[in-house]
Nucleic acid binder design. Sequence first.
DNA 1: AGACATAAGTTCAGAGATTGAACTTACTCT
DNA 2: AGAGTAAGTTCAATCTCTGAACTTATGTCT
Lengths: 401, 401
Amino acid sequence: MSTSYQQQHKAGDLHFLKRLNRSAILELVRRTPGLTRADIATQAQLTKATVGAGVQSLLNQGWLREGELLKSSGGRPGRALHLNDDNHVLFGAEVGVHGLRLIACTLSGQVLESHHEHLVPTTPEVTAELLAELLRGLMHTASVKGRHSLGLGVALPGPIAPGKAVLRLAPNLGWRDIRFLDLLRPHLPRLEGTWVMDNEAKSAAFGELYFRTGNIPESLMYVSAGTGIGSGMVEGSHLPLVTRGVQGLAGEIGHTVLQPGGLYCHCGNRGCAETLVSGWSIRAALGIAEEEDLIEALLPRLNEPDVQVTLRRAGEALGILLLNLHHTQNPSEIVLGGSLTRLGEALLSPALDYFKANQNRLLGTTQQVPLRVIEDSTFIAARGAAAQVLASIIHGPSDLS
Amino acid sequence: MSTSYQQQHKAGDLHFLKRLNRSAILELVRRTPGLTRADIATQAQLTKATVGAGVQSLLNQGWLREGELLKSSGGRPGRALHLNDDNHVLFGAEVGVHGLRLIACTLSGQVLESHHEHLVPTTPEVTAELLAELLRGLMHTASVKGRHSLGLGVALPGPIAPGKAVLRLAPNLGWRDIRFLDLLRPHLPRLEGTWVMDNEAKSAAFGELYFRTGNIPESLMYVSAGTGIGSGMVEGSHLPLVTRGVQGLAGEIGHTVLQPGGLYCHCGNRGCAETLVSGWSIRAALGIAEEEDLIEALLPRLNEPDVQVTLRRAGEALGILLLNLHHTQNPSEIVLGGSLTRLGEALLSPALDYFKANQNRLLGTTQQVPLRVIEDSTFIAARGAAAQVLASIIHGPSDLS
DNA sequence: AGACATAAGTTCAGAGATTGAACTTACTCT
DNA sequence: AGAGTAAGTTCAATCTCTGAACTTATGTCT
């Protein structure tokens, strides 16, 4: 199951058609900044007249701005069009196991303000209140003030019930069946626009695809390696959809079995990927206490043999996990993030080596699936949640106010 | 990457809108036979006038037929609408490792004719010629003759290059980079309509979702357990899309690693799922020759201890595979097919038991993902390929001639 | 049986979005 | 300076959907 921007099997009236064309124009400019009206007419297969009218209305509403005059190739030069980054603001937040991350960004994903609050979240209610306070702080900064808010996206560390805004489970927070947005809303009556929430790996995946310009991959998978292991898959370069699954369990790759009959996992099954590679399994293997920051504790110890062995084994498991995703969903691009990437080569080399060595076994080609590692993924999920807000407005039923 | 029915980021003109509304009406009646014009107007959010005009044109073109007068609830009774199964025919075929399967079916997926030719395909060219001959035979049967052909779908046992009609690899046929439709076309100049080809598990998955009426699952996964193991995932109940991946490797679950450092697979890697559960691994474990039919050889031997142990181990691996898919893609429904299902309980019980025992570990719910086993999956993929033809016409750019 | 209520389906003038052709604008090349 | 080319605008024509009025067909109440 995917996020659908139009759940019903609706047909369309003229108003719908107009909206569709406006959002097609906006998408084209968003993906290829500097397009001219003539370019849009060609690519969207609309007439110059329709595009002219559509662009004009998007200019008036503050979504687009006219840019420089382009070089002529023997005729009247075209006028470049760009997203208008000055009028709107998107808010994104992530509730993580070790802290709250917040950002405010523009239509093109440019970060205006960000904040990372280190803390271990307690109850959903207290966390919501604190997050709301921090968001109010962001709203009143100079670079944000005066902009029209399009909405707020919240990324959470666990599966979300599809279709409902319910966090089903966050094992590392001890939360279950939380309607987090409902807890947040009373504290933020002034934050206007669309509110959405999603799983952190799915938000991250979405943002990595959605804010990209130029050549957009057909699909993208984000693997989030932290306390647990999760993934998010986005498909469709033109209208990107996040795969969720009936129960929101899509991407719970930490609980795919890699070692039948292996160690017990906290989920009760044996041999889950998380028993081999995850923050908690590394802690368990090396005896690092919950109170210590795992990464800070390990970085000075990377030369110790037992640390090296532990990370190499974990890395090998991560490599297998990546290969299994390659043979299950075969994304156009893989992005690896989460706090564990900060451990560097000791963990990543075995993983990337295994993946490279085995990804072409079936087809015998030399084509490599691009795999990018994000060293600092602090605000990736929060920014992705903001991207989801924008997408739900552009592709959703609303009217591009 | 998914099959997209409109590859570009096109916007729409009035003609597009009309086509969209016609196909929305057709889809509604297809999914809910017996709908009235008034029902359609409600569900598609169109006015009675628009629906009336649309239905009239679909009636004239032979896609719909008027049925019985429905019971009135205190007003004029509505006229039931149904797919018109009398005018069109869809052709579907599967090239399998042990034979060719062909069907001709109606718009609603009702099989008109079918044929199963047992043989081991040789070269692509010879196979194409033979398949063409068999298809011509189907075209001239009484129940097919006179119908307007909408096209042909061909299912093949290997990954297909996305966007191109190229079979990248069929390990069990020894084929590589075959443009099968191009080989077939010269022999079938009279078979009109849209031609498509796809991987057999993907075709099967598509057909299982697409021809269903009533409550349509949001997604469906078909697991094909035969000589090798493959899967196909379809998402979106309203506009179903098959997940393919950049290289067409999505669903190659036979080569996900279940046992790091395990047995060597024919792909060169170690511990692939196929080394634990597949036609060839069962043959290897029990020493059954290629020439023998695996199923026929085993059915009389199900009481033998070594057979039971082998099948139980294979079944357990299959159970893990299903659970891993559950935690990776979380389909709304799983359908298990392929020749191995004919082995019955000995193989299936361990698989289904493991899946049932572990699928709810994360959320702690009691909700079960429906898992259906198809005992006789002979024509499932061929019929699915026919479904893909229909879908490409209804949702594609063509005009519902 | 007849009158009334209710709901399905049709008709048609009107609204609204895209179109295509003609036109204007603006730059390059000779 | 003039011809050529391409971008963008204008506007009457076209096409589809809409909304309200109308017709048709059945159930229900008296």
